[in-house]
Design a protein around this nucleic acid. Structure first.
Lengths: 344, 344
DNA sequence: ACCGATCGGTAAAACGAATTACCCCGGGGG
DNA sequence: CCCCCGGGGTAATTCGTTTTACCGATCGGT
């Protein structure tokens, strides 16, 4: 086994392959970088053959030093381990990076501001070609001025300083889609089991919910809103509370899929069936949504697409073409947890 | 906003800071790298001051080129977006990397062998100081010979080729801990809702389960095993089946926390209370376990620690001191979903 | 007064590719 | 016959560090 980093037979360099076919390193470089308009097809082929034969691979550190580009995207986030956010977002970033022969360099900041600054500095020292910031729960973040040195995009986060571009889910439309769905099914008593009170997403979803009610000519005051915290237990408790209300709601709009899961358990314990007795709608569309029994109707947050979009623009050099804020739509995905209300 | 990568005032180099205090670049390098035994304290301080004043930061690409070390750890995994595995593992890797002034460079392979090879090649081209492979479900993987060029550790995966080191959860002991826990509570009819049949983890957990039964002088044949697939719906269906068995089990040992969640829903619909009527044990200890109502007793897989351990050894250069396989224990974490069986 | 050690530094050579500025040769036009 | 041009390359420089010599003083000892 290797003792230290990169031991063993030294890798052939561009010079070695040049020597092998009797041309200069320049020629090899030209061929490999596709600037071969000045190189004859014959030479070109011989170089390519030698590259293959010697198993030549470029030294990325050298390329990075000389060219200033490292084929690397810096990714800074609150907490990589948190679901359902991080996974799809980094997948999206990763996939387009990979298509561009680039890789993700990531830093977890635990929301610590000094760590954020350190992360940005480190990433810039490493000559990343772009920077993507992502927050777990949508929120405003503050970034060091340093980020101006590199194309930067925020995902699920925004900032008032500077002219940075942000990509966000359209939570308002998502909340509205959820109500409209149950309204269309004929529900007239709807409860909203909201997530953490002061979160940006919570408020936006709630506004969408209220606007949906209003648009249907209904009075939001007739439809209770319970405030929780996005966790299963919170969904459980809120559902218990909601179902003990005077005229019982026939539809539960949950702050996220976790809360919906809690609601499932609560409803089952109350002897209520989903969706026959009560319809349940989640939010996020995390993998578990499709696995719940019955499968959960929910609103999908396009984290993967948000990641892709962010990466595409940083690599494409088109960050500036983006508006200050881009909202991606959150479609409702109808599954088996919603149906017309009982007795209809 | 920045047009291209790293535009604006050019960064000061080691030479600039040297010039600024009237010493050579060598001196600056020596000071910065801590090799200052040959440098007088006075000069040392002047250099440090200049570094601060000019805001000098080293160019990592240049350092990487010259030294062959890049302060970078390559991380290759099946699928970054899958829970509950990836998050904690990469957190562990990331945290020790960060402590070492290093960063994670990651690649998602989607289990595609050619992609694995490409990832290894790319990472080695980038001169990573170490490589960590991780599989979502524990399994054997096949690695290109190339990995010998760099200290490599497998996490939650193993291989028969070469002499690579692997870090794995002790699933056998975990499975056994689960049975022993319910046995100690006095349960006599236990059902095992197993995960995907041919998975390594499934088998190991099952063996632990059986051995626990045997050790207690019980006959495994008296305790049914149901085979599923680690998803919520599977837990739901298996729990339904299990509870319709002749003498009803009083304890359900689930393949993972997702299945336990499904079991919760099924039990609630059957009008059975947890833990009064039936005890439930999960596996994994993902975040949701603590949030379930009642909070789920489960077996914890130390993914975070596995990540830390892997990183520590690759950075410490102590990979070879590791045995071929290191098993980390999976402790039972007792919460509220287990209790003595009814009527006891 | 001369000889070796230190001490405190420095100049120069890597590291491997990208890039700039030429250079040589053959052929076509005048 | 001479000139110029363009095709096909190449030598040399550069990127910013690390590292390996080596060097000029000062100093203690005899």
């Amino acid at each position: 086994m290797a003792k230290g980093p990169n031991v063993g037979t030294p890798r052939p360099t561009i010079l070695d392959v040049g020597r092998h076919v009797g041309v200069s390193a320049t020629t090899v470089s030209l061929v490999l970088s596709g600037q071969d308009n000045k190189i004859s097809p014959a030479t070109r082929q011989r170089v390519l053959d030698a590259v293959n034969e010697l198993g030549y691979r470029p030294n990325r550190a050298a390329q990075g030093l000389r060219s200033g580009r490292t084929q690397t995207l810096g990714f800074i986030t609150d907490e990589i381990a948190v679901q359902p956010f991080s996974g799809p977002t980094v997948s999206g970033l990763h996939d387009v990076a990979w298509e561009q022969h680039s890789l993700l360099l990531m830093v977890n900041t635990t929301r610590n501001p000094s760590r954020i600054r350190a992360a940005v500095e480190d990433l810039i020292d490493r000559q990343v070609d772009g920077l993507v910031f992502a927050a777990i729960g949508t929120r405003e973040i503050s970034l060091p001025d340093l980020v101006r040195k590199v194309p930067t995009v925020l995902v699920n986060a925004f900032t008032s300083e500077g002219d940075l571009r942000a990509i966000l889910p359209d939570e308002h439309a998502g909340g509205r889609a959820a109500v409209e769905h149950v309204l269309a099914l004929g529900h007239e008593r709807i409860a909203h089991l909201a997530g953490r009170e002061n979160a940006w997403a919570t408020k936006a979803r709630l506004r969408g919910y209220v606007d949906g009610l209003l648009a249907a000519g209904l009075d939001p005051a007739d439809h209770p809103v319970f405030s929780g915290n996005y966790r299963i237990d919170s969904g459980y408790e809120l559902a218990m509370r909601a179902m003990s209300a005077k005229p019982r709601p026939t539809a539960l709009l949950c702050g996220n899929d976790q809360m919906a899961t809690g609601a499932y358990i609560a409803l089952a314990r109350l002897g209520l069936r989903v969706p026959e007795d009560v319809s349940v709608v989640g939010y996020d569309d995390e993998p578990l949504a499709a696995d719940l029994r019955p499968a959960l109707t929910t609103v999908r947050i396009p984290f993967y697409e948000m990641g892709r979009m962010a990466a595409q623009h940083t690599f494409g050099g088109t960050v500036e073409d983006l508006p200050a804020m881009t909202y991606l739509s959150c479609p409702l995905v109808a599954r088996a947890s919603t149906a017309p209300p009982p007795g209809q």
